[in-house]
Design a protein around this nucleic acid. Structure first.
Lengths: 255, 255
DNA sequence: CGGCCGTTTGAATGTTGTCAAGTACGGTGG
DNA sequence: CCACCGTACTTGACAACATTCAAACGGCCG
């Protein structure tokens, strides 16, 4: 049984300096608004790799932002098979809307830190700062679009194309967060099983596809290390247009 | 080239009485807020069955609500294959956020009427009525959850289960709109091709699956007429829990 | 060094897609 | 009312793709 009340206490997140969580909500808001958010926050929480923030069908009492670490949303079916719905990087929004039980679970891939805003603070927060409501909607909207992208990939593309698309997505989203490291290599904390569960295929077949991509000098993924050898070919195989790739990383339009 | 300026003129939607479009945003808002929306509206537009409201990659200049008719969101890939992302019934939200080109297209399955709120009116509207921002976020959140449901279905379930789930979803969502007709029969304006494009399978295989379901006395779908013969079995095959089914139809929590 | 987890590979099986041909429905014009 | 036409549905045979099962290998950590 997980409860957001058990705050870590040891790791107070600095909301004002926080690059990750608040970016989409408050990039061009006055610094003041960030400080406002601090007032509505409940506390922070750390989750160990492999643990759940919440499980499927478990009530979820707060709105979370990931401050640090990788997590993923998943759903389970009766026979134990799992579908990964979304990989959540720092800045992702995690549980919205009070009194509802989540239809999916959230598990940490690495050790992670999330900050929580209790649902009952949400109404007052938005009354005071209406702009945040629209930004919230925009953040969810983006996640919805990403889900739609994945839907086309899984529904209409071959195993090879699906794997290529997922690796590309994770690479692009990761690199946006640390643009300083302009490397074609990254630490990707997944197993081939995870990739299979995210792309709707068996882990074993993921392996075969990866071998193919490696032999052709396109990408290498081995023991949680991803190397993009031929970015252009990868984009080509993934079959996503540049427009769409941009949409994975775009920020709230500052008018 | 479609443009929202070409208002129908012939069919002014009555926003105050409108059951469909505004329900989620304003169910327990004062009637006054509905009247406010009228002021922010641009006009209405009719779309003939088979026509697009907008095409993939086409800029989308307004926020639309479906007032009447069935539509669907789709994306296309190079070789012409299509993935249907979502079937939109009256009340669905259609294009959010300014200056962006949609990554998908929207086509009408039946003749349809939508009402449009220009993006530039959105900011002022929400400044004045902050509650609407949160409701907007909630609406999008629901669509995101629905997309996640579909993702598990397509990614992890057999053809038979996927078809069952889709028919169940459409039936449940449809019946919520007209609860008066408590019939197990409905007009479902799709071809088997549509079902295939939505479930990630070929139209031909959809046919085989439907034959199976018909032979077992579970559902009949023939020339746009859907009949649920054995609801319990259908839910069972679709493999969705009652909790999830409820989430497809739930409304904004009135606190 | 041993054990464990994740990866790698092969062979057999199964599900779904493709191709090709035929059939039924529903609307239109005579 | 009927003949006609186009679209959608139906069916079978075959091929392609992905899954499953089983076994071995590899890195990593105690």
């Amino acid at each position: 049984m997980t409860s957001f009340q058990e705050k870590s206490g040891t790791l107070p997140v600095d909301c004002v300096a926080c690059r990750a969580s608040i970016e989409d909500l408050c990039k061009d808001c006055a610094l003041a608004i960030r400080q406002v958010l601090v007032g509505y926050k409940l506390g922070d929480r750390t989750i160990k790799a492999g643990d759940d923030l919440f499980r499927p069908a478990e009530p979820c009492a707060a709105l979370y932002f990931i401050f640090e670490g990788w997590m993923f949303l998943y759903s389970l079916i009766e026979d134990g098979r799992r579908q990964i719905l979304h990989f959540a990087l720092p800045g992702s929004l995690l549980g919205l809307y009070p009194g509802r039980t989540a239809i999916y679970g959230v598990e940490a891939l690495t050790n992670a830190v999330v900050c929580a805003i209790p649902h009952e603070h949400l109404g007052p927060l938005i009354e005071k700062h209406p702009g945040i409501g629209l930004r919230l909607a925009w953040t969810v909207w983006r996640e919805r679009n990403l889900a739609y992208d994945r839907l086309s990939s899984i529904g209409r593309r071959s195993a090879r194309e699906r794997v290529a698309r997922l690796l590309l997505e994770l690479f692009v989203r990761y690199r946006m967060m640390w643009p300083a490291y302009r490397s074609e290599e990254m630490h990707l904390p997944l197993t081939q099983e995870h990739i299979g569960d995210a792309t709707g295929m068996s882990g074993i077949h993921v392996n075969r596809v990866l071998r193919g991509l490696r032999n052709e000098g396109i990408v290498e993924f081995h023991y949680r290390r991803l190397r993009i050898l031929n970015p252009d070919r990868l984009v080509d195989i993934a079959g996503v247009d540049p427009q769409t790739i941009l949409s994975w990383t775009e920020r709230y339009p500052s008018t």
